[in-house]
């Protein structure tokens, strides 16, 4: 990955804090900067704040203090800014969250028509292209419940891509899948990475991290313990806690 060209910083996260109303501190003085086309993998034990970090990036959670700027737009109380950022940031969830009352095509058309104000015909054209990309054209008229988990997740990725986002967030996108379906979803994610999409990926798939990540962040208790290239992480992690964690998940 050495020869990959990065752009400017597309996401800057500075000293953000997030405490939930029940007193749980999910993020504490968290800072990280992500460049255009960079693939950042976030790892860490359960409850360390990985999901909260992702959800703060597109305003699904409000931060208590600190600053997040995405592609020049500050994520603050301003509703317009929040909406602008959500248009530019796609998200893929562990549980897929497809809309069960719509066909695959309408799932992918919806935001194009409502948010990007495209006609149905224009939207459908892009939808069919995306379905080709995630390898599932034959299911355009199916309802989500008629698809396998792997197929649903690929549709969810297509749905997010339909907004032509500049950044994609993946929150354990393969964790709810049967083992034989993990590969097909990772394959789509790898293709995106190769095409230069900026990605922030929470995952336990170390093979994926090793193969496509440009930077790995290890989190614990709402803080970054250690950050570095995948090579650094897998050959000689500096922190004792990182070593313990990697030993646990690699065995």
């Amino acid at each position: 990955m050495q020869d990959k060209q990065f752009g400017d910083y597309i996401i800057t996260v500075d000293n953000i804090n997030k405490t939930f109303s029940n007193g749980v501190v999910a993020l504490s003085d968290f800072t990280t900067h992500i460049r255009r086309s960079e693939v950042v993998v976030v790892i860490g034990p359960s409850g360390s704040g990985k999901s909260t970090f992702l959800r703060c990036l597109n305003g699904l959670e409000d931060i208590d203090s600190g600053a997040i700027v995405v592609d020049g737009i500050p994520l603050d109380d301003n509703r317009k800014n929040r909406l602008e950022i959500r248009k530019e940031v796609g998200m893929v969830f562990q549980q897929f969250n497809l809309f069960p009352h719509m066909t695959v095509r309408d799932n992918i058309n919806l935001a194009q028509q409502l948010v990007r104000k495209k006609t149905r015909a224009d939207a459908t054209e892009m939808t069919m292209d995306l379905l080709k990309k995630v390898n599932i054209t034959e299911k355009a008229d199916a309802f989500p419940a008629q698809l396998s988990g792997g197929q649903q997740q690929r549709v969810a990725i297509a749905r997010a891509l339909a907004m032509m986002p500049k950044v994609m967030l993946f929150d354990e996108a393969t964790s709810a899948l049967d083992p034989e379906m993990i590969g097909e979803v990772l394959e789509v994610m790898k293709t995106l990475a190769r095409e230069g999409m900026t990605m922030v990926v929470v995952t336990h798939e170390m093979g994926f991290a090793r193969e496509v990540s440009d930077w790995v962040i290890f989190m614990e208790a709402g803080k970054i313990v250690e950050g570095g290239t995948a090579e650094h992480f897998f050959s000689n992690p500096q922190e004792e806690r990182t070593r313990v964690f990697l030993n646990q998940i690699l065995t």
Partner: peptide
């Protein structure tokens, strides 16, 4: 998750 998916797509 339905709310979150809709919001993450930029829906009002």
């Amino acid at each position: 998750g339905q709310w979150e998916a809709a919001y993450s797509l930029g829906l009002s």
